[in-house]
């Protein structure tokens, strides 16, 4: 049985001026134990491409799909908004069209990072449904959502410094545009799934949503 690799690697994106010291992630610890029997998990990274994350996942033997959905949202690209009406509406279909063509039930895990904090709530259900369609039975979604007390820092980006340590950019000053995503909302996004919430000291919760089924079935 393959054990989770938890040894430290020198991060490519060091904790310098543009980043904060990495911190241990209880969710990641749980994830890699959960996936310990899988030699080659297929992971989709929805954050800005990071050499550190790629290196960590490659060493773990993962096949990586990178689909940066966060950078366009941080730029608040006008293309995602339909402003023809009195109230601008988020173009969820167009947003999802930015994703890679990925076969249904082909991924072991999706690292969504803080994407839910950056999306209007009305888009959550559709985005989550699309993601879950990519996941194999037993597959998981990892995301980070802010606590109510955290009002600024929406532009903070995340990466893996090693399998169980998260790196993050310097805490930003930009206010969050949308209300806090509650645990109940997350549970509603994934009916029938197992939702695990891990509290951290960073003002954020780490959430792992596990789709029903055996994670070891159908793996390459």
């Amino acid at each position: 049985m393959m054990r989770p690799q938890t040894h430290q690697h020198a991060p490519h994106r060091s904790t310098g001026a543009g980043s904060t010291p990495g911190h241990s992630s209880p969710a990641l610890e749980w994830i890699w134990k959960y996936l310990s029997d899988l030699p080659s998990p297929r992971i989709m990274d929805c954050g800005p491409v990071s050499q550190a994350t790629v290196d960590v996942l490659v060493r773990r033997g993962a096949k990586i799909h990178v689909a940066d959905l966060i950078t366009p949202l941080l730029r608040d690209e006008a293309q995602f908004w339909d402003r023809r009406g009195k109230i601008a509406s988020f173009r969820t279909d167009f947003f999802l069209s930015q994703l890679l063509p990925i076969a249904p039930e082909s991924l072991t895990g999706i690292f969504a990072w803080n994407l839910f904090d950056l999306l209007p709530h009305e888009a959550h259900a559709q985005v989550a449904a699309r993601w879950f369609s990519f996941l194999r039975p037993g597959g998981l979604l990892f995301c980070i959502v802010r606590e109510p007390r955290l009002e600024k820092g929406s532009e903070t980006t995340w990466w893996l410094e090693n399998l169980t340590t998260l790196g993050s950019g310097r805490e930003g000053t930009k206010a969050f545009a949308y209300a806090v995503v509650t645990n109940r909302e997350v549970e509603r996004l994934a009916p029938g799934a197992s939702v695990k919430t891990f509290l951290t000291r960073s003002g954020r919760r780490e959430v792992v949503v596990v789709i029903q089924g055996d994670s070891t079935t159908g793996q390459n």
Binding site: V49, S50, Q51, V54, V58, K63, V66, A67, D68, L100
Partner: peptide
């Protein structure tokens, strides 16, 4: 081997 600098844009899969 693959090297990706910070700030680069990449969308796709990586196979080492």
């Amino acid at each position: 081997a693959i090297a990706i600098e910070d700030g680069a844009f990449f969308k796709g899969s990586i196979d080492i």
